[in-house]
Design a protein around this nucleic acid. Structure first.
Length: 477
RNA sequence: UCCCUAGUAGCUCAGCUGGUUAGAGCACAUGACUGUUAAUCAUGGGGUCCCUGGUUCGAGUCCAGGCUGGGGAGCCA
C-alpha cells in the first residue's frame, strides 16, 4: 500500500496514468462534478472529477467547503483548461464533514481583520497558506545561510534574570501566588521565595548571551522568540516575536554591514527561488487590493519586482550626519512638512526614515554613526567621542528592519558607559568580564523575523505573518 | 499611552437634511443545467442596525458614556 502523494508532488512529477490517493480539504464543488481540493503542500488545488451518479446523493451533499476527504482514482491530463492534471475519481470518502452554515471560511474574499478572529481556521485560506509556507522557507533560509558560513546556532535563554538590557518593558516570570505573595517585614515582596530566588523575566534579546558565545565560538547566531511588554499597538509590533541575532568575533562595523546586507539579499533571493507560486498569488492579491485604494497609496512596483530589486542592488550607505543633512536640504523640510524638527542629535522619526528610504533613495538604506546619547550602552564609541558604531537598515514600506552595532570591547570605556546609562555593573558582571579576559573587536545585529516576512509577502499588518499574534489585550488561541 | 476612524444579514457593504414593513452582492437551502474554473440561471429563508442611557410624536440615522475593530504617532525589531 503506497503512501499517498502530496498535491505538490503530483504537480511536480505529473505521474499521468497512475492510480493515486489524495487527501485534502474541499475548496469548492463546481457543477456537481469538479471538486477542488487543497492539501496545503502548495497553493495549487487539485481538480478531482467525480460523477454524481457514482458518488451518490448522500456523499455529494457532504462535499462542502472545508470538508476533509480522501479520494482515489487515476491521474490524467486535464480535459479542461485552467489546470494541467486532474484526478478521475472512482472512490471518495468523507473523512471530516464541515457544516456550511457554521464554517466561516468561504471561497470568496474575506477581510484580514475577520480572518484574524478566526486564526484557527485562517490557515485554510490561500492567503495565509501562502504566507505561512513563505514564513517556513525564510526560516529555513536563515538557518541555511548561517550554517553554510560556519556560524553556530546558539540557544539563548528565554527566561532571564538579567534586566540590564533596556530594550523594552519585560514580562515577569514568577511562581509566586500573585493574590498573596510572601512579603518581607517592610511589606515588599520577598523575591528570594520565588522560583529562581530573584526576579526573572522573559527575554527581550539574546544579544548579550550571543556576545559571550561569539567570544569563544567565533561566529554565532540566535533565532528564537523574544518578548516585549510595551503597550504598543501598531501594525508593526508584537508582544511575542522571533528575532535573529548574529554575533561575530573580529567583525567591525563595516563587516557587520556587509554581513547584514548579504544576509538580507540572500533570504529574499531564496524566497524568490523557492516560493514562486505563493509570491505570484500574493502579488496578484496585492494588485487587486490596490485597485480599491487611492493612487498615491498603491505600491509603485509589483511585489516580485520589489524583491528582485532588493536582491539585485546594493544598499545605500550613509552616516547619520549625512542623513540629517539630506533631510535639512529637502524641499519637504523647507516646506515644513515634517511634524518633528530636524537637527543633529535627534532620534530619526518614522517620517524622517520614510522620507529617506521611500522618497530620497527609493531603496534600502544603511545608516551608521548615530549620536551616542540615543543608542544603547554596549555600542562602540567612535573616535569623535560623540557618535557610536551603530547601524540601522531601513527598507521601504517597513522602516527599520535591522538594528546592529560594533560592540564596545574596551573594558574601561564600557564601564564608563554603564555609569552614564545607570546600569549597575554588578548586574552584568558576566558581560563585563568578557572584556577583561581576551576581549576583541566584535559586532552583530538583530533582525525582526516577522518584519522580514512582512517585507517578502507584502503583508501590511504584522499580525498576519505570525500564526497566533500576541498583542496588548489579546492572547486568544 | 495619545490622535483619527468605523461597528447594519454568516461575509463585504449601501441606507441622503430623523419619517411606512431596513436593502444589495456573495454565502446558505431547493430546483434546473452538466467540462466547470470564486460555474451559471430561477426561487426562498435569514436582522439584538455593537451595548447602555438620553433628545424626539418618531432614532440604523442626532447626543453622551462604554465595548470592540482598523489607521497613524510614540517606543522599537
Amino acid at each position: 500500500m503506497p503512501k499517498h502523494l502530496s498535491i505538490q508532488t503530483l504537480f511536480a512529477d505529473q505521474p499521468v496514468g497512475t492510480r493515486q490517493i489524495v487527501k485534502g480539504w474541499v475548496r469548492t464543488l463546481r457543477n456537481d462534478q469538479f471538486l477542488s481540493i487543497s492539501d496545503g503542500s502548495t497553493i495549487k488545488t487539485l481538480q478531482v472529477v467525480i460523477s454524481k451518479e457514482q458518488v451518490g446523493e448522500e456523499i455529494c451533499k457532504k462535499l462542502q467547503t472545508g470538508a476533509c476527504v480522501e479520494t482515489e482514482g487515476v491521474l490524467q491530463k486535464s480535459l479542461g483548461k485552467g489546470q494541467e492534471i486532474e484526478l478521475i475519481c472512482d472512490r471518495i470518502e468523507i473523512l471530516g464533514e464541515s457544516d456550511p452554515n457554521e464554517f466561516p471560511i468561504q471561497m470568496k474574499r474575506h477581510s484580514l481583520e475577520f480572518l484574524r478572529e478566526k486564526a484557527h481556521l485562517r490557515f485554510r485560506t490561500n492567503t495565509f497558506g501562502a504566507v505561512f509556507r513563505i514564513r517556513h522557507h525564510l526560516s529555513f533560509a536563515i538557518h541555511k545561510y548561517f550554517n553554510d558560513r560556519q556560524f553556530f546556532n546558539l540557544h539563548s535563554p528565554i527566561i532571564t534574570g538579567s534586566d540590564a538590557e533596556g530594550a523594552g518593558e519585560m514580562f515577569r516570570v514568577t511562581t509566586l501566588d500573585i493574590e498573596n505573595p510572601p512579603r518581607l517585614e517592610n511589606g515588599s515582596i520577598d523575591n528570594t521565595a520565588d522560583f529562581f530566588g530573584k526576579p526573572a523575566n522573559l527575554t527581550v534579546s539574546g544579544q548579550l548571551e550571543a556576545e559571550l558565545a561569539a567570544l569563544a565560538l567565533g561566529k554565532v547566531y540566535t533565532f528564537g522568540p523574544t518578548f516585549r511588554a510595551e503597550n504598543s499597538n501598531t501594525s508593526r509590533h508584537l508582544a511575542e516575536f522571533w528575532m535573529i541575532e548574529p554575533e561575530v568575533a573580529f567583525n567591525d562595523i563595516q563587516d557587520n554591514m556587509d554581513l547584514a546586507e548579504d544576509f538580507l539579499r540572500y533570504c529574499i533571493r531564496y524566497a524568490l527561488d523557492h516560493c514562486k507560486d505563493d509570491l505570484e498569488f500574493l502579488q496578484d492579491r496585492e494588485a487587486n487590493e490596490d485597485k480599491l485604494k487611492p493612487v498615491d497609496e498603491r505600491q509603485a512596483l509589483p511585489l516580485i519586482q520589489r524583491l528582485e530589486f532588493v536582491a539585485n542592488n546594493t544598499f545605500e550607505r550613509i552616516t547619520y550626519t549625512e542623513a540629517i543633512d539630506i533631510l535639512l536640504q529637502s524641499n519637504h523640510y523647507k516646506k515644513k512638512k515634517f511634524k518633528y524638527d530636524v537637527k543633529w542629535g535627534i532620534d530619526l522619526q518614522s517620517e524622517h526614515e520614510r522620507y529617506l528610504v521611500e522618497k530620497h533613495f527609493q531603496k534600502p538604506v544603511i545608516i551608521t554613526g548615530y549620536p551616542a546619547a540615543i543608542k544603547a550602552f554596549y555600542m562602540r564609541l567612535n573616535e569623535d567621542g560623540k557618535t557610536v558604531a551603530a547601524m540601522d537598515i531601513l527598507v521601504p514600506g517597513i522602516g527599520e528592519i535591522i538594528g546592529g552595532s560594533q560592540r564596545e570591547e574596551r573594558y574601561d570605556v564600557l564601564l564608563e558607559k554603564c555609569k552614564q546609562f545607570n546600569i549597575p555593573a554588578d548586574h552584568i558582571w558576566w558581560y563585563l568580564e568578557t572584556r577583561k579576559f581576551g576581549t576583541c573587536v566584535h559586532a552583530g545585529f538583530g533582525l525582526g523575523f516577522e518584519r522580514m516576512v512582512m517585507y517578502v509577502t507584502g503583508m501590511q499588518n504584522i499580525r498576519d505573518v505570525i500564526p497566533f499574534p500576541r498583542t496588548p489585550q489579546n492572547a486568544e488561541f
